[in-house]
């Protein structure tokens, strides 16, 4: 069970003391692993399950409910770029932005560019409708986005 780094193991064990039970640390643990490794592998799932006294199936059940986490067959690119397509953004060009970005980068939403630069995702309302159309760069919002900006972000080293 060497796949979880010491830093992550320590964080998980520490977090267990801050929740009424260990299962509550499932989402934080999945986030830490994905942030470090770009995906959550089968071995990492087993590692999390062992630390939280759960079965691997319980962790998988939770993990797969949230489209957010990627398994080892679909690792994330260096950056994850989410393009909002909900109503306020659609009204200001969000759908068009997403299709132009996908076309120029040669990917479908959910896929990673060939050089591993970026994973392009479609997002529902990002809570930044005042800056529609908007995007999320990893976990930072960027308002009034353009296709040139997204393509640039996908190509430059992060």
């Amino acid at each position: 069970m060497t796949v979880l780094s010491d830093a992550i193991r320590a964080k998980i064990i520490d977090a267990c003391g801050r929740y009424p039970n260990k299962q509550a640390v499932t989402l934080p643990a999945l986030h830490w692993v994905q942030q470090e490794q770009g995906c959550v592998s089968k071995e990492a799932i087993e590692g999390i399950a062992e630390l939280l006294d759960l079965s691997a199936a319980q962790v998988i059940d939770t993990m797969t409910f949230y489209g957010f986490f990627k398994d080892e067959k679909h690792p994330l690119g260096r950056r994850r770029l989410w393009v909002c397509r909900s109503l306020s953004c659609m009204l200001r060009g969000g759908d068009g932005l997403l299709s132009e970005v996908c076309q120029r980068l040669g990917v479908q939403p959910g896929q990673t560019t060939a050089d591993g630069g970026a994973t392009i995702e479609l997002a529902e309302c990002l809570g930044a409708c005042d800056g529609a159309p908007c995007i999320l760069i990893d976990d930072s919002l960027s308002l009034h986005a353009t296709a040139d900006q997204v393509v640039q972000l996908a190509k430059e080293p992060s």
């Binding site: 489209g67 679909h74 397509r85 659609m90 759908d95 068009g96 997403l98 299709s99 996908c102 479908q108 939403p109 959910g110 896929q111 995702e121 479609l122």
Partner: peptide, 10 residues
């Protein structure tokens, strides 16, 4: 005339 929404690939 609106762009066709793209399906998600997971």
């Amino acid at each position: 005339t609106a762009p066709e929404a793209l399906p998600a690939h997971h």
